[in-house]
Nucleic acid binder design. Structure first.
Lengths: 150, 150
DNA sequence: TCAAAAGTCTATACAATCTGTAGACTTTAT
DNA sequence: ATAAAGTCTACAGATTGTATAGACTTTTGA
């Protein structure tokens, strides 16, 4: 039931790109800087960001002063999208996946106990991951920081 | 975010062992029969059941008329226990695991956005998996079967 | 115009985990 | 004694996860 390193690194990078700069806008940042600040292997991060770009959640600019930036406002990018791009379906078992359903081969899916439960688990995960935007997260972090005085 | 085949097969087998026989009691069943009925590779299932036995949730009897059976009433065996034995911690990321916590290396765990979210995800999963017993599942299956008339 | 800074793309390597198989062994009932 | 069952260890093959390499393209600005 684990998030892969790809997913983890990708989410961390997206979160960094979603954190407003001093001017209040979402920044443009180079692979190199993300990699150093978050201690992510640079070449690995490169692939991850590229995948996110090809999926349409990031844009990039080549050349001097270039880098990656969010394709849309942070309030419109949902965690579930990011995870699906990098790690595939969220469902614990294929037969309860909404996005990538596949039969599991049990005699009667309607009365399969495992499926009944995993359906609920998927729903619970989705209720969080498909309802939370990058902005929701950065705001929560801000709130917590203020609370702790850091 | 996937349950492994080990976990899946193990849960299916446990569910089968938790389904009361005609006398209303929890049955004793041979590896072979479980393997055939659930279409699980026999030798693979053998390892899985052995692990569950060593973890104390199953008992076994050798020799003629032997087989596996639940170590406790189905109402006292929780899905989360089974999954942890076969698949390890439930948490999507180590730094939010209750049973197997490990630092993830971010500068400040208290204000790590990823951690904030994954903590909620873990809690949501745990709320289901650590609160549902094998009996809860078999009863739900019965209810659904009755509803559908099968 | 050209050099440096940045991203793009494909291939590949290595390790870990997952899934499954093999076989020799022990225990128990009849 | 024999057959039916579980026990235990090793290992093999495939897949996935993690990471590195290197050659390429685009852009800026000196």
């Amino acid at each position: 039931m684990r998030l892969s390193k790809r997913g983890e690194y990708g989410l961390r990078a997206m979160l960094m790109l979603a954190t407003p700069a001093v001017d209040g806008r979402t920044p443009i940042i180079q692979i190199r800087e993300i990699s150093e600040r978050e201690k992510i292997p640079g070449k690995f991060l490169e692939q991850i960001l590229l995948a996110l770009k090809n999926a349409g959640v990031l844009h990039s600019k080549m050349g001097v002063g270039g880098g990656y930036y969010l394709a849309r406002p942070a309030s419109e990018i949902i965690l579930g999208q990011i995870i699906r791009v990098l790690d595939g379906p969220i469902a614990p078992i294929k037969c309860v996946s909404q996005m990538a359903y596949e039969a599991c081969g049990c005699p009667d899916e309607e009365t399969c106990g495992l499926r009944l439960i995993m359906f609920d688990v998927r729903a619970a995960m989705s209720a969080i991951l498909d309802e939370t935007s990058l902005e929701d997260v950065t705001k929560r972090v801000d709130a917590k920081r203020a609370l702790l005085g850091r």
